[in-house]
Amino acid sequence: MTRGEPTALERFINGILPENPVYRQLLGMCPVLAVTNGMKPAMTMAGATAFVLILANIMISLMRGLLKPHLRILVFTLTIATFVTIADRLLAAYMYEMSKQLGPYVPLIIVNCLIISRCEICASKQDVRVAVADGVGMSLGFALALASIATVREILGSGTWLGLPVMPGFWPNWGIMVLPPGAFLTLGLLLGMVEWVNQARAKKAGKRE
C-alpha cells in the first residue's frame, strides 16, 4: 500500500473487498457475531451502520480543517453518538419489531471501531467526496460480510433466507447455528476461507512475475 492518500475510487473499492472491514480488518466483531442469526437483523444492522458511517464521515470531513489534534477523538465520538441516537430513534419509530429484536446492539454501533477508524484514517484527512466514497465502500463491505455470515447461519439454522423457506422439508434445522457458537464457527470458517483464497492468489501472482 502506498503512503499517498488514496483517491475516492480507490477508497470505495478498498472498502468492499481489499480492505473489507470484517474479513481484512477484523473490525466490528460485536454486530458480526451478535446479529447475524438471520438476514433481516443483519441487513438492518448493516443499514444502520451505513447511515452512521456515511453521515459521520461527511460531518468529520467538512470540519477537518477545524479539528484540534487533542480534541479530535472527542469530536468523532460526539458526532457518531448523535447519528447513532438518531438511527436508534428512527428504527424505534418505523421498524419497531426490528428495533426490539436488535435491542442494545443499535446503541452499541457507537463503539463499532469501524466508524471511528474511518473518521480517523480517511474523513479527518480527505475531502468530502473521498469521505463519502470511503463511507459507502466500507458500508458495502460491512454489509457484504454480515450478509455472508447471516446467509450461512440462517439457511443452516432455520432453513430460511430473509424469512423465506429455502431448504427442503426434511432438513433438520441446526439449532447451534442460530445460537452464539454458530456465529463463532461460521466467522472462523469464513475467515479461514478468505485467507486461503488470498494466499492462493498471492502465490499465483508471485509465480507469474
Binding site: 477545524l66 472527542l74 460526539l78 448523535t82 419509530a93 419497531y96
Partner: peptide, 25 residues
C-alpha cells in the same frame, strides 16, 4: 469552541428528532 458548538448543534438535532418521532414511538 468546536466541541461546544457541536454539542449545541447535535443537542438541537436530537431534540428535533425526538419531537418528531416520540409520538410515533
Amino acid at each position: 469552541w468546536l466541541v461546544i458548538l457541536l454539542a449545541l448543534l447535535y443537542g438541537g438535532a436530537l431534540a428535533t428528532v425526538h419531537t418528531a418521532l416520540s409520538a410515533r414511538i
